[in-house]
Amino acid sequence: MSHQDIKFYQTGTFTVGNRLLDPEQRSVQSTLERTNALNSGHRACPGCGEALGARYAMDAAMAATDGQIVVANATGCLEVFSTPYPETAWQVPWVHSLFGNAAAVGAGLAAAMRVKGKSDVRVIAQGGDGSTADIGFGPLSGMFERNDDVLFICYDNQGYMNTGVQRSSATPPAARTATTPAVGPHPGHQRGMGKFVPEIAMAHHIPYVATATVADLRDIEAKVTAAMSLRGARYIHILVPCPLGWGSASHDTVRLARMARESGLFPVFEARDGEVTDSLKIRHQVPVEAFLKPQKRFAHLFGKQRDEEAIAYLQARADRNIRKYHLLEA
């Protein structure tokens, strides 16, 4: 992986910090000096994965650029809970325009910095899966193909959670949302729909594409740092569990992200110039059930009669990811 694994120091590099490591080996989040780019007092639900992921990523970007960051944010949970006018939880220069244009605003900011000769000020655009995969997809693809000097971060909570949990094109099959009720022969979200944006980003042959989850802090920090060391269009897609939309306990956010990765349902990898270069290996493989069962949006799979067929379908998706991204150690 892009970060250096510490083999054995009680908890190695699995925990946020580790008092046994040398200071230079420690994570940004473990330090007293972290920026807290997304500060206390924001109105995200208890246990919000997006708030956590955004702070992880943004603090790492701040650390990697000496704080020279400007952020364009799409409409969505992240914008609504962080910045109800006139208050904001952001401790970075931050601009919100529309739901669909974060990538375009980011591209414009990058152009402005270039014109002003401020090459040291870096631009990040960010949003949820709705503004990334659906509403802002055109501007995003444009930013990629022009290779604008922007890092786009998508916080993927697999639906439109802020507006009442509607499906997005990142909602997984069988998941119940307000618009995909658990009725019919295949209850929940239909099969054969949706898209996986990281692979589409790779198809643009941009310098850097990566996925991550909030369960692997070291991995996020390494990827954001790697992205900030490059110029051109870069894309990081972070899985952020949503207690509200997933119907999960607020204390299970990190565990669910971990189960998504350890089951293979969410592949964590890194790609450069359109080619997968590395993947984070599964440490203790779990069946997809470990990810699905704690979530109410999949409760219909585990009712009086278990929906074995649907569970097997999702397991097959996980197994395909494991093969495709070599998620198990050879």
Binding site: T15, V16, G17, Q29, S40, C48, L52, R55
Partner: peptide, 11 residues
Amino acid sequence: CDNCYGVCPDN
């Protein structure tokens, strides 16, 4: 181990 310090979404 700093885990609590890190995983708190609310600092």
